[in-house]
Amino acid sequence: MTMVYARIADRTVADEYFAVTSKVESLYAASQPAVLPPDAAGPAMRALRAEATKRLLGNGYCARPIELDCRYETICESCTMFFTTIEHRPTLQAQRDDADLKGQTGRRDIYDALLQRLDDAPA
């Protein structure tokens, strides 16, 4: 989620993010465990989370701004708006292996590049 919030351009959402962050940090500073109240996230952050959830793909996320409609259904992995994280590695590996099994070298190469990018990313 940090990568999603790192791309926030909307000042209102950014302000809400930092307000929630300070509440979470105060929980860690407390001597006794506490619970973050359900209303800690403001309406703009809840809307952003709902939008990100809608754009979740099986093997990553679509970072395309909502204003830029996408007409393609299966081009995500080679799109510059696609990003993935280590939790999607098993799915990407299975897709890579499927492409290799079917002799789809172009598709296999795309997944190889994505897997390599994940392996090269700092942990």
Score class of each variant (00 low, 15 high):
Q95E: 05
F82C: 01
G103V: 12
A94E: 09
T91D: 04
I86H: 05
L92G: 01
I86V: 08
L101G: 08
L92I: 09
A113R: 15
G103Q: 13
D100G: 02
T84V: 04
L114D: 01
Q93L: 15
D98S: 08
I110S: 08
D98R: 11
L114Q: 00
R96N: 06
M81N: 00
D100K: 11
R107T: 13
R89E: 15
I86Q: 10
A99M: 05
E87I: 08
R107I: 13
L115R: 10
D97E: 11
D112E: 13
D112V: 14
F82L: 04
D97Q: 03
A113C: 09
A99R: 02
T84A: 03
R107M: 13
R107V: 12
T85V: 15
E87C: 03
D112I: 09
L115G: 09
D100I: 07
K102G: 03
P90G: 04
A99W: 04
Q93R: 14
D98L: 10
Q104P: 00
T105L: 15
L101V: 06
A113S: 15
M81E: 01
T80Q: 13
T85A: 13
R96I: 03
D98N: 06
G103E: 13
P90W: 06
L114M: 02
D97V: 00
I86S: 07
L101F: 10
P90M: 05
R108C: 09
L92R: 03
L115I: 15
Q95V: 01
G106H: 08
Q93W: 09
R96Q: 10
Q104L: 15
L115W: 14
Y111W: 06
L92Q: 02
R108I: 02
A99E: 05
M81Q: 00
G103K: 13
F82D: 03
Y111S: 03
Q104N: 12
T91R: 10
M81G: 00
K102I: 02
T80L: 10
Q93I: 09
R108M: 14
I86D: 06
L92F: 06
I86F: 03
D112Y: 06
R89D: 03
Y111D: 04
G103R: 12
T80Y: 09
P90T: 05
P90K: 05
E87H: 09
H88Q: 14
D112H: 06
K102A: 15
R108G: 07
A94K: 12
T105E: 14
D109E: 11
T85W: 07
I110K: 08
K102P: 01
R96T: 00
